[in-house]
């Protein structure tokens, strides 16, 4: 159960180049990307903060949820975008649509994408505008998001397998490794039925 305020970013098609520009992808570890999250929107070329960018707005301080416009996370497959969001402190991203690769990267890192319909998203943006401390209560087990200020309780979709992974703290590799025998048997079957299938 996550109870948090949120930061609004009412822009559509936010691509992963905006979330983390390419010049920050030179690191060889997963840590420290949060400082560069939305770098080109958040900082001026001289490094000082852009006053009216929501992440710099003290009214939203401490929020663990980002509420963003439709088609969030499109573009490059860079998982660094998810690492940057998580490193900054976000646990939940709310939008009316997520790009496929972003969604999968987020779920692989315990960052929860919550998809709601466009009308509710717009109402939520208005509500945050009216009250910067608007709260969201997210219950993964029940797949529910509660917005007390709007008196709304919505159910969100999540792939049941991924939900299990998130709740139990295991990941795809743990599962796939447990299927190793099946994989080897399949490789053997295929090399026998299609001997020239691959030449590697």
């Amino acid at each position: 159960m996550i109870k948090t305020t949120c930061i609004p970013l009412p822009i559509e098609n936010i691509d992963t180049d905006q979330i983390i520009p390419a010049r920050f992808l030179k690191a060889t570890t997963r840590e420290g990307f949060g400082n560069h999250l939305f770098a080109d929107w958040r900082y001026l070329p001289d490094g000082s903060p852009v006053a009216d960018f929501p992440l710099n707005d003290p009214r939203y301080a401490g929020a663990q949820a980002l509420v963003a416009g439709k088609n969030f996370g499109c573009g490059s497959s860079r998982e660094h975008a998810v690492w940057a969001l998580a490193d900054y402190g976000f646990k939940v991203i709310v939008s009316s649509f997520f790009a496929d690769i972003f969604r999968s990267n987020a779920l692989n890192n315990g960052l929860l994408p919550v998809q709601i319909d466009q009308t509710l998203l717009e109402a939520l943006f208005q509500q945050i505008e009216a009250n910067s401390r608007t709260q969201l209560i997210i219950d993964l087990a029940q797949q529910q998001m509660h917005i007390p200020a709007l008196n709304r309780n919505v159910t969100f979709d999540i792939d049941p397998y991924k939900k299990l992974c998130l709740l139990n703290g295991y990941d795809d590799i743990d599962y796939i490794l447990s299927r190793r025998e099946a994989i080897e048997a399949w490789e053997k079957y295929r090399s026998e039925s299609f001997p020239t299938k691959t030449h590697i």
Binding site: R78, S104, N105, L177, R180
Partner: peptide, 20 residues
Amino acid sequence: FGIGTSQVEQVLATQCLLQY
């Protein structure tokens, strides 16, 4: 298709991916 780094790790480790 393109994948994220967690999936790069999966393919290196297992030569497989879980995909709908």
